[in-house]
Design a protein around this nucleic acid. Structure first.
Lengths: 337, 337
DNA sequence: TTGAAAGCGCTAACAT
DNA sequence: ATGTTAGCGCTTTCAA
């Protein structure tokens, strides 16, 4: 038994009922002030009576804009939900957008058909997009930048482009600061579990670590590359322990990797911070729930999402905004250093 | 320095370049077979050269459909990301949708303006919607059902409607089974931490608990209402302990509440399962990471999301589908019972 | 302040 | 197999 679908009221119906032209209805709907009070009242009542809602496709087509933006996450769904960082950024962006006329569409890039995302963005579905955490290999977005306004979360690896809008922390400084905390404990043999070297955050945090180590007149004891996940931190630390690597300090490029490393250290009987002093970047639930709780550099991903959305919408509305927005970070001292 | 935006190629441009009519281009784009091979080839090349992507608003307007569906979560963003259940459902739905021509838009209902969601759905932005976990108070969606195809995750509380499509587990049976596990341990004084009583899952799991208790010739020892979160489970268990409630078994309506309760029990020095036998519904990360790991009834939210998406898309395409899809559950024995 | 009319880019009869 | 044409529902000049 197929239920009859109620026909959706159109602008024309409203116009008829209110005894005015479609143009006037359109003006009322769009808040123009060139409408007499009684005409406006008649229209508003007709709208209420007919439960009229403007058709968005028609509106988009007519005015060449959609009033919606996308948040693109070039990671698969599982990874997206496992990482508290993404959640926070989305929250921040969603909250900002909620206060505007725009809608936020979450675009998780599908493994099966990555081009689908690109087509979607290019197909005029959105007026702009926020792009999170993309790897260097992702050339797709670089080209999109000339088609519609983009704002990146975290610096991109593309160098040969102008007009790239980025909201990020100073990853080099953050890593340096986290490393200095370890050095201040008198540790001299520093290990690092770094992030993917095809991402800005991965590269920069490694650079910061190296700077701090060198500034202190030391050499890194050992550096390994992970993928920001707890599992990779755990695995790498196991390998380090197994190979009898000699270190008394550890800087993990993410709290998630730090969390995994801490587990591996505990399993092997090492005491933190007594045997190894540990710090990391990201002050998320992993940092708070590890044993011991991690000393970290906090970034504020919620705020980042908010700023990204704000910048994008301003760009869409033709305002000038700075290309680089560098957010402050904060050292959070807990028990692992 | 405002970068010039490349003009997006239109169907008309493609037609000119390929030396055919717009209709033919449209046919090629939409995969009609009534096009000669060489015409098709010419069109395809023109499309490639111009990097043409169909404008979705225009297409929607012309054919009266959008090829996208929404996943509506009537919870705020924070709650959404904190609950592994939502994540799984989204994953399942996203995965299914990825294999179709449809796009999935995630609609987190905004605290600031709940009507925004409704307007969006009504404004012809999507061909249908998946609705998750809605409370009885949410009348908004009930009315939408007559405007566009809806598929609910978890049974709705509205009674006076026909044509309600629901994908759910048998919550009564699940709760009964979880309770019977405790009873089989010889426990006779059973407590329950129930879910919100304005949600189907909350109500039904309480009913199942009561059925099992009565079937065993017992009476419930104590029943408290939580909100499915770990914090509520923790708080309620603290109160129970404080008030010296007498029970040797506990059924929690969600693993998250079970997790919190387990913490409170441990803090008060109780041993599980020695002192209290505990089971719950939902086999999520909370169930696996609690101490001891929880014996639970597993539902399969990923599969649920998948089925929901499948049913919705079939309905949109005019197929008949059953109104009720009851998914199987599975008893997962761990160490808490 | 209002209305008439011309599209926005596409699809879908209807012709041919 | 292909082209012609009339819209889809709305906005937006342009006139009045």
């Amino acid at each position: 038994m197929q239920e009859p679908r109620k026909p959706q009221a159109t602008l024309e119906l409203v116009a008829e009922r209110a005894g005015v032209s479609r143009a006037t209805v359109s003006r009322v709907v769009n808040g123009s002030d060139r409408v007499k009070a009684d005409a406006r009242k008649a229209v508003e009542q007709a709208i209420r009576e007919l439960n009229y809602v403007p058709n968005r496709a028609a509106r988009s087509l007519a005015q060449g804009r959609t009033n919606s933006i996308a948040l693109v996450v070039p990671e698969n769904t599982a990874k997206f939900f496992a990482d508290p960082y993404f959640a926070k950024v989305v929250q921040g962006a969603a909250q900002y957008v909620a206060g505007t006329e725009f809608m936020l569409t979450l675009l998780l890039s599908t493994e099966s058909d990555p081009a689908k995302t690109t087509r979607y963005l290019q197909g005029g579905n959105v007026d702009g997009a926020l792009v999170l955490s993309h790897h260097a290999a992702d050339r797709s977005y670089a080209d999109l930048g000339s088609l519609l306004p983009l704002v990146y979360g975290g610096r991109t690896m593309s160098t040969n482009q102008n007009e790239i809008y980025v909201v990020d922390i100073d990853n080099i400084a953050a890593a340096r600061q986290a490393t200095e905390v370890i050095i201040a404990q008198g540790r001299t043999r520093l290990a690092m579990i770094a992030g993917p070297q095809d991402m800005g955050a991965g590269l920069d945090r490694l650079t910061g670590f190296q700077q701090a180590v060198h500034n202190a007149g030391l050499e890194p004891a050992v550096i390994r590359i992970g993928d920001f996940t707890p599992a990779s931190g755990h695995r790498i630390m196991q390998q380090l322990i197994e190979s009898k690597a000699d270190f008394d300090g550890l800087f993990a490029a993410s709290a998630q990797m730090g969390f995994g490393a801490l587990q591996a250290l505990a399993e092997a009987g090492f005491k933190v911070p007594a045997d190894v002093s540990v710090t990391a970047v990201d002050d998320d639930s992993f940092a708070r729930s590890s044993t011991p709780p991690l000393t970290t550099i906090a970034q504020f991903p919620e705020r980042q999402g908010e700023i990204m959305a704000e910048l994008l919408i301003k760009r869409i509305q033709g305002e000038q905004v700075p290309e680089w927005s560098i957010m402050d970070t904060k050292l959070v001292l807990r028990d692992s250093h």
